[in-house]
């Protein structure tokens, strides 16, 4: 173990940490924005409505994240049409390609988590809402979605951790995220153990924060399930 390698390259790791945090937070945000409508459409009984969301979820859960990133980064860049289009300034950058792949991927998983939670809504609650004369939209907004989000929380916590770890593949498209920093340090000092262990420790730290954050969140949202404090 040569700690001086780690200390000397700490700024690089911190830079990588910042990029990883950015990518994961933004991917989760946009992924959630996408996931809610997809989950709602997916719970429909009409094949015309649930068909496309079903295919979307199936595709993004059915292929590795790395393949999706390669298709967006290398695949789209191959076509002249894409290179000439207004999207190219974004798709040219590895950053946006990675963000796009991550957001689309996490949207599929999140939508599936939400779908499960929505379908588990106690039917009594739905009946009560209908009896009160709520419209469908109001019922989703006031009754179904809030309780579905509560039920989805533990599973979503897992998805956030998976997204964090999945984001490590950003380093294969030249981005210097946490793992990217580790790879540069390894290649400069030929010390794979020190360089990857350091990156791993940063991931551990982030995971700890996520786990702790979700614990707090669950305390709030699942307060009604906790035994009363005496």
């Amino acid at each position: 173990m040569d700690l001086s390698i780690v200390i000397e390259n700490l700024p690089l790791y911190l830079q990588g940490l910042w990029l990883t945090v950015q990518l994961v937070v933004m991917a989760l945000f946009f992924g959630m924005l996408l996931a809610i409508p997809i989950a709602l459409l997916r719970t429909s009984k009409n094949p015309l409505v649930y068909g496309i969301p079903w295919a979307y979820i199936y595709f993004f859960r059915g292929t590795p994240l790395l393949v999706q990133l390669f298709m967006i980064y290398h695949g789209l860049g191959q076509f002249e049409v894409v290179q000439k289009s207004f999207l190219w300034p974004f798709l040219k950058e590895a950053y946006w390609c990675a963000l796009l792949a991550f957001a689309l991927n996490t949207a599929a998983y999140t939508a599936e988590i939400l779908r499960g939670a929505i379908e588990q809504t106690a039917f009594g609650e739905v009946e009560a809402a209908r009896a009160c004369g709520m419209s469908r939209a109001l019922m989703f907004r006031r009754i179904i979605l809030p309780s579905a989000f509560r039920r989805a929380l533990p599973a979503y916590g897992n998805e956030v951790i998976f997204m964090l770890h999945g984001s490590a593949i950003a380093s294969v498209v030249t981005l210097v995220d946490l793992l990217g920093a580790g790879r540069i340090v390894n290649s400069r000092h030929f010390a794979p153990y020190e360089s990857y262990l350091t990156a791993g420790l940063f991931y551990l730290g982030l995971t700890f924060l996520i786990v702790w954050g979700f614990k707090m969140w669950e305390r709030r949202w699942h307060a009604h399930l906790r035994p009363r404090e005496t």
Binding site: H74, G77, Q78, Q83, W88, K92, A94, T174, V176, I184
Partner: peptide
């Protein structure tokens, strides 16, 4: 600086206009 794992990947990205 964009750093690639292989020289071939750098060529591909150059051709893609990055």
């Amino acid at each position: 600086i964009k750093r690639y794992a292989t020289q071939d990947e750098a060529y591909l990205d150059a051709a893609a206009g990055r």
